[in-house]
Design a protein around this nucleic acid. Structure first.
Lengths: 218, 218
DNA sequence: ACCTGAACACCGTTCAAGT
DNA sequence: ACCTGAACACCGTTCAAGT
C-alpha cells in the first residue's frame, strides 16, 4: 500500500504551540531540568537555533509553562467566604508548584504576564477586596502572598529533592540540634519548636500570619 | 640576586580558606555567576577536580559564601526595642543580599548551617522572644521572615538585573496596564495601586504585615 | 594516600550562510 | 524573508591513573 506524503508527514510543523506542548510533556515526565533548548529541538527534529523563532529565551519559555499550568486552576465556589477562597486558590497554586519546584525557582525571578496568570491575580484581588481589605493592601498583599507560595514551593518542593539537598537539610538539623546552649541561647530556648509541625501545619501558619497582617494593615 | 624557592613560592597552598577567599573576591567584583569551579580552579592554578577536596559541591560553596557575608552583620544596639531590632537585623541581611541576588536565589534552596547563620537566627529569635512572641510563633516565624527577605532579594536584587529581566518587568507592566476592565475587573479597581510605592515602602509594608501576623498568631 | 588530567555529558545563545 | 548548521563560550562532576 503506497503511502502518500499527505498521509505520513515527515515531521510536525514547528510552532510556538508545538514547542510548549513538548516542553510541558517533558516537564511532567522528567522535570524542568530536562526541558532544555537542545532537548526540545531534538524532539522536534530541528536545531536549537530554530526555537528562538518561537520563544525569546528560556525564561520566557518558563513563563509560558507557568501560564499553561495555571489554566488548570479551578475558581473557588461562588458563595465561599473570601478568606476560604484565598486559601483555596493559593493552595491549588502551591500544590501545583510543589510538583514542579524548579519551575517555582524560575518563577521567583520572572514577571509573569500570561492571561491565566492575570486571571489568577484578578481572582485573588477580588477576594481580598470582597473581604474589605484596603485597595493598597490588597494590591501589595497579592504580590506578597504569591511570593510566599512560590518561595515555599521552590524551597520545599519534592520532585527533584536531590541527595545533596537532603544532605543539607540533615547538616542544618545537626547544626541546630547541637548548637551550644551557651553560644546560641535563643535557639536553645525554642529548639524543639524549630523542628515541630508538619509541612502542612507550617504552611497554614505562614498563610494565616501573612493574611492577618495584610488584612490588618492600615 | 638569586631567589630561593622559599622566598618566591610558585603558588599559594590550596585550602578551603583559599578557595573561599578567591570565591568571595570574584563574587564581589564580578557577581556569583562568575564563581564557577573552573574559574576558581584556574585562579588557583589547578584543575577543577582539585576543588572537590575542599568543597562538597557548588551549593555547599554558596553556603560558605553566605556565612562569610553574614560575619559582617552588626548586632542591633543593646537597648533597642525588639521590633526595631528585628527590622535593623533583617534590613542589613536584605541589603546584603540585594547586592548579590544570585546568591539569594541559591540561598533560597539551601539549608544554611554555618556559625554566623546560626548566630543570626539566634539574634532574631531572641528579639522575637523578648517581644513576647510565643515560642512556636517565634520559631516558625523566623523561617518566614528569612524566606521573605531572601525571596525579595532574589526577586528584586539589582546587580545582575539583565536586559531580559527588564524586558519581563516591562511586559508584565504592559499586560497589567492594558488588562481589559471587563475581563479583569479587580485588577481594574486597584490598577494604580499595583504600581504604587517605592521598593522601600513595599518592603516595609511586607515586613510589617508579616511581623504583625506572626506576633498576633496564637 | 592524596591529588588531578582528561573526559563525560552536557548547557544557552548567536550569526553567517544557506534556501 | 525565513530558517538553521555550526560554532562560541562555556558548565559541574567523576574517576582512572598518576605521584
Amino acid at each position: 500500500m503506497p503511502v502518500s506524503r499527505r498521509e505520513r508527514p515527515a515531521k510536525a510543523a514547528l510552532s510556538r504551540e508545538a514547542v510548549i506542548a513538548v516542553a510541558l510533556r517533558i516537564m511532567r515526565d522528567e522535570g524542568l531540568e530536562k526541558v532544555t533548548m537542545r532537548r526540545l529541538a531534538s524532539e522536534l527534529d530541528t536545531g536549537p537555533a530554530s526555537l528562538y523563532v518561537y520563544v525569546t529565551n528560556t525564561a520566557e519559555l518558563h513563563g509560558a509553562l507557568l501560564d499553561e499550568l495555571l489554566s488548570g486552576l479551578e475558581a473557588p465556589a461562588a458563595g465561599i467566604a473570601w478568606r476560604g477562597g484565598v486559601v483555596a486558590l493559593l493552595s491549588q497554586y502551591t500544590r501545583m508548584l510543589f510538583a514542579h519546584p524548579s519551575l517555582a525557582r524560575s518563577v521567583l525571578t520572572l514577571r509573569p504576564s500570561g492571561p491565566n496568570y492575570l486571571r489568577f491575580v484578578d481572582s485573588l484581588l477580588g477576594l481580598l477586596l470582597a473581604g474589605g481589605v484596603a485597595a493598597r493592601s490588597a494590591a501589595w498583599g497579592v504580590d506578597l502572598l504569591l511570593q510566599l507560595a512560590t518561595a515555599t514551593a521552590a524551597e520545599q518542593g519534592t520532585r527533584d529533592r536531590s541527595a545533596d539537598a537532603e544532605g543539607e537539610v540533615y547538616l542544618q538539623a545537626m547544626a541546630v540540634r547541637e548548637a551550644a546552649a551557651a553560644e546560641y541561647p535563643s535557639i536553645d530556648r525554642v529548639r524543639d519548636e524549630l523542628f515541630s509541625g508538619t509541612g502542612e501545619e507550617r504552611y497554614r501558619f505562614a498563610f494565616d500570619a501573612l493574611l492577618d497582617g495584610i488584612a490588618a494593615a492600615r
